[in-house]
Design a protein around this nucleic acid. Structure first.
Lengths: 199, 199
DNA sequence: ATTGCTTGTAATCAGCTGATGACATCACGG
DNA sequence: CCGTGATGTCATCAGCTGATTACAAGCAAT
């Protein structure tokens, strides 16, 4: 180790996972190198591979962690409240999760990996799990669940495009942005990853 | 050349572009090799690079082609008709475009490349162009345009996930699928790319 | 302090991939 | 029939990347 501290492998796994989510979200599965994740986490490339086995397993772990975190936030949002307004509260919770760098985009990258025999299988399972949550736990109707998901996918798209860069400059972009983000969380949204960001 | 025919470079460009869209859609920008595109188009890897300059320029050409085609389909869908029902007609047109292998997913991959200095810039420009089309030419309200786009992103997600594989098996997946695809185009949707597909 | 387990790195490598440059083949006008 | 431009391939290569192996260093208990 260099200047780093010695950790339990469990703590190290967590810190590597956080780095992996940030970078997978930015560069995608194929575009991410285990070395970049390692440097972001302050360990050697070989150690990342050792702790997680393969890059594929690292991605699967990151992906699962992301879904857990999102469902957890959704649960908090609908907890104990009346049925009305659940979509809106979950929507706000979803936007607030943007503070977790790479969360939404790691998920979204997984959505495009359906053709991968291993990751695709996992991604479909997790997607179905989210749908069941919306229908059963959040008690949304089919149409509500569909529209909620759709809105989420659009948010992911805007984030992935780094469209915030043109917010305030291009009128069309400003309009989309205002239409997709509730006014009370716009300040959070404005602290989104930008083009010039390291990741 | 091997068993292939000699073409004008213009015709060759078109056939390479079609192959590129199919494969970029399946594997993404980073995950696609120029060699795979070349073999799908029946030419050598070096010729693909020669005709388009770089892999990046090939992707940009594919991406632009995709957007042109989609806007063209949207234009046909709204052409001369009353304002009412335009979203639905464009939605149907969008689903029918699924017959063009890789079209939607090449677009969607570009949405996740916002961090790329070259491709991201182009992707944002094209996205803004689509939004302006929806607002100005298709004359949708801000909310209609947003909801239309959102639905499109959800469709892209289902396609990218190859979720059709679980249609009819997993009740949750069957439900999502029915909620997102109009009944009259479901047969088209059911001929979507599957997990086992070559691309 | 010696043993043994955990945390971690350095060295290395085989395979892949985009790109370059030299060369081959075809069509066609004069 | 010959020259010239266009269409295309083959050989090659440098750079990157995930993974393996060997090795080092710290901690804990006997």
């Amino acid at each position: 180790m260099n200047g780093g501290v010695r950790m339990t492998s469990e703590a190290r796994r967590k810190s590597i996972l956080a780095a992996a989510i940030a970078i997978f979200g930015s560069r995608g599965y194929v575009g991410t190198t285990t070395d970049e994740v390692a440097r972001a986490a302050g360990v050697s490339q070989t150690y990342v591979v050792r702790l997680f086995g393969t890059k594929e397993k690292l991605f699967l772990a990151a992906h699962e962690h992301v879904v857990e975190r999102i469902l957890e936030a959704f649960r908090d949002a609908v907890h104990g409240e009346s049925t009305r307004g659940r979509s809106e509260r979950m929507g706000t919770a979803y936007i607030e999760l943007l503070a977790d760098r790479g969360l939404h985009l790691t998920l979204h990258h997984a959505f495009l990996l359906g053709g991968d025999p291993v990751i695709g299988e996992a991604a479909r399972k997790q997607f179905a799990r989210v749908w069941r949550f919306l229908r059963e736990e959040a008690e949304l109707s089919v149409e509500e669940a569909r529209d909620f998901l759709a809105r989420g996918m659009l948010v992911n798209t805007l984030v992935g495009l780094r469209l915030i860069d043109d917010y305030g400059t291009d009128p069309a972009v400003t309009e989309v942005f205002r239409a997709c983000f509730p006014a009370d969380v716009r300040d959070i949204a404005e602290r989104l990853p930008r083009v010039g960001d390291a990741w």
